[in-house]
Each structure stands twice: as C-alpha cells, then as structure tokens.
Nucleic acid binder design. Structure first.
Lengths: 241, 241
DNA sequence: AACTATCGATAAAC
DNA sequence: GTTTATCGATAGTT
C-alpha cells in the first residue's frame, strides 16, 4: 500500500498498547473477547498442524457461553489429560455415540502418518535432486541442480532447454489460438492448496467457519452462570507424561 | 529502527512467512513448538485477564509431554466443560457429534488432498531424479510436464527456461575456462520457483502465483527405491530453505 | 464488520 | 538463550 506521510496522518483507527487488566467497558470487552477468542483458536489450530501436537482449548465467555476446540477432539485431549493426571478415572465421554467419528479420527490419523512419510520421501528425493548440496537462501533449484552436472550433461541440457523452449512456445501458441475456450480448457486451473493449504484457500469466511480447518470447534449451548467477578492470574502447571 | 536497505541485508535472523503444514524437520519443529506453546499460554492468560473468561489450554507435545493451564485451574474448567457436555445430552449432543464428525471429515479430506499433492510432487521429483541419472531414450521430465500446464504457467515457464538457459551457458563457460568448480552465483529472478514446490525458496512470489503439481504425469514407477519409513527426520538435511 | 497503524509474536540466525 | 527483521494479531476508529 502506497501512502505518503500526509495520508498517513489522517489514518483512522490506531492500535495502542493496552494493559492486561480486566476491561470494564462492556462493549469493548465483548469485541475484544470475540477477536482474541478467534485469534486464540487460530493459534491453537496452527500449533496443532505445525507440530502435530494434540491441543485442546476450552473457554467460557464472560456471559457463560462455552467454546471448545481440539484435535482430534477436545474430549480426547481431556481424557488423555485426566488419565495422565489421575491415572485411572473413567472419563465421562467414553460412552458417547461416536462410532463414525472415531472411525474418521482414526483414518485421519493414519492419513496424517502417511503424509508424514510421503514428506520424508519428498525430502530424500529433493536431496537427490539437489545432489546433496545444501542450498543457500538466495539460490534457486537449478543453481544447485546445475552444479551437479558434468560438462557433457550441461551441453546436453542446453540443447534440451532449447527444445523445451520450442515445446513451451508451441504450447503457448496452441493455447493462445484456442483462447476462446480458455475457461473450458482441458487443463484444470492450478490448485494452490499444496502451497497454501490453510491460510488463503478461503479468504472470505464467516466467523464460525474461520477455524474449521483442522480443529474441531464446537460452541456449547447456554450454560449456568458462574461468578466471574474475581478471576486472578493463570494457574500454570506443567507435568510430565 | 531506521535502516537503509544495505543495512537490512546484513541483518541476522529474519522471520519469513511459513506454511501452516506439519513441520518435518525435527529440530525446527521442537523450537517452533516451544515458542508457540509459550505464546499460546500467554495469549490464553491475557484473554482470561482482559475479559474475565475462564480458559483452559491443554496440549501434548509430539513427544507426548503434557502441558496445561487454566483459570482457576485446568481441572476446574475441564469439570465444568464435561458437566456442560453431559448436561446437554439429548438436544445438542447429537448435533455436536454430527458437527465434530463433519469437521473431522473435512480435516481428513484436506489431509488426503495434501497427501495427494505430496505424492504428485514426489512423482515430479522422482522423474527429475530419474532423468538426471538416466540417459537418452527416456523422455525428459519436462516433455510430459509441459502437457499439463495452463497458459500463464507456460509463459512463466518460458521465462524460467530462458533464465535457466543462461545459467547453464554460464556454467558451461565456467567449466570450460575454469576446471575449478566454482560455486554458482545467485541469479536474481523474482517471480519463479515453479519447479520447487517448497515455495519458501522464493519469498517474493505471491500466494496466488504459487505453482502446484496437480498434473497428470506419466509416473515412473520407482517408488520403492528406498524404504522411506525407516528414515528418521534427524538424518535428513535441512532442505526446506 | 471493515480498515489501518501499531504492537506483539516469532522464524531464522547466533 | 538472545537478537532482529518480519509477519501476524488487534485496538481504536468509521
């Protein structure tokens, strides 16, 4: 975005540092809660995906509304946590009717495992392609690719490149002359989901759809009130498995 | 901080945009998990204080270590959550399970899709490896590769190829004049990275331009050259750039 | 709810 | 751990 300094001056909303203290203004609290709840779910989701970690996030709004998310499921995480902490207390979510769900979860985990191995395989292949030469930040693949070739191979490659260029140009011509049917071309549009699997696939989503990518998030219906008036700092604990 | 561009270049640690996908590299995953775990706890705490909300966050590291925090205590939140869930058996629990199921299915499909893409990428890399090693009578990978490209991709590829040709010619010159294998100089080429799906190689490219490998290629069946499942991540080079 | 400047989180390098 | 540049989250405004 291009702006000169004067345009900058008359910018509208400006963020300022805030103290981490209970917000008294009700509307502001509501907005903040909504925004930060979304941000928190988003970050929990990202951590889960990035690290393959099991994450559960449970929160009650000041109004007493419950939200939870987790992968594979909040109950799963809770059970594991409780089993961990108390060794053997029967969980209340055992007898739930989750046959199909648990099947899906199982499959999901299997696919994730397979994906993991496929990525490992990709790394190995990439290593081979790069001739085991580590790439610098500013190098492109052919820089290292070319490094591994002998002179003969290089000359071969040069002629290959010329042929390829012809092929490409021919293909461009074909595609251009057929441009009337461009939208219905036999070549499907590139699917960028490989590169951007979670962030930019659906740029515009509703509030509720925002975190449906991988964490199960389910707002719970209305619930009895608690007294939220005095809540202190977080009670942190770490424990070993 | 005021810095001109040259000083910028010399900076040490640089944050770059990362894909929200499972991190394969173990050390990197470990660091990311640790940092993001702290950030997540911190944000959960802030939300709790700012809005007076009850928040519980439970997570298991990939290694199986459990962490939890909550107000007033994780167990308290969990109890409340479980009571809540039990209390709402009948009306919403059915919907909730359905919701969880569909979300799980959605994630499953996404993972499967990513796996598909990863496999196609593996095919391309495999083909590349085979063509690098193999000789002559096989078609080169790009011959089939080109068939699946759209017009934009073809034009992108054409310019890529011209740059690559220059690199190859330069390399030929170097090899011819200097028997010493000098390291190739980085070629500033802003809008590429077509071939290497690990898109972080090129920070300039926009998400929309990301290339993918969802193409119909003639697979070269050489999948089981290696047993990838036995390869630990730690043994692999850092190749994610 | 959308926008923008700012602040905070954090990826990469040390 | 520490540092630093960058990216993402978000406070305040409309």
């Amino acid at each position: 975005m291009e702006m000169n300094d004067k345009e900058r001056k008359r910018s509208t909303g400006r963020k300022r540092k805030i103290q981490i203290q209970k917000i008294v203004d009700k509307p502001r609290l509501q907005v903040t809660f909504s925004k930060r709840k979304n941000g928190l779910f988003n970050k929990a989701n990202e951590l889960s995906v990035l690290c393959g970690a099991e994450v559960a996030l449970i929160l009650f709004s000041p109004a007493g509304k419950a939200f939870a998310c987790g992968h594979p499921t909040p109950d799963h995480i809770i059970d594991r946590f409780l089993d961990n902490a108390e060794a053997s207390i029967g969980s209340s979510s055992q007898n739930r009717n989750v046959d199909e769900l648990s099947l899906c979860q199982q499959r999901c985990m299997e696919v994730e495992k397979e994906l993991d191995e496929e990525k490992k395989r990709g790394l190995v292949l990439q290593t081979l392609v790069n001739c085991n030469v580590g790439t610098g930040d500013d190098q492109f693949w052919w820089d290292t690719y070319v490094d591994g070739l002998s002179l003969n191979e290089l000359e071969q490659m040069r002629s290959d490149m010329e042929n390829l260029k012809k092929i490409v140009e021919k293909k461009v011509d074909e595609t251009t002359s057929n441009s009337t049917a461009s939208s219905s071309s036999p070549v499907p549009m590139p699917d960028t989901s490989m590169m951007v699997p979670y962030s930019d696939v659906n740029p515009v989503v509703g509030d509720d759809e925002m975190f449906d990518f991988s964490l199960d998030m389910n707002p719970i219906d209305a619930y009895d009130q608690f007294d939220f008036s005095n809540i202190g700092n977080a009670n942190l604990l770490e424990l070993e498995c």
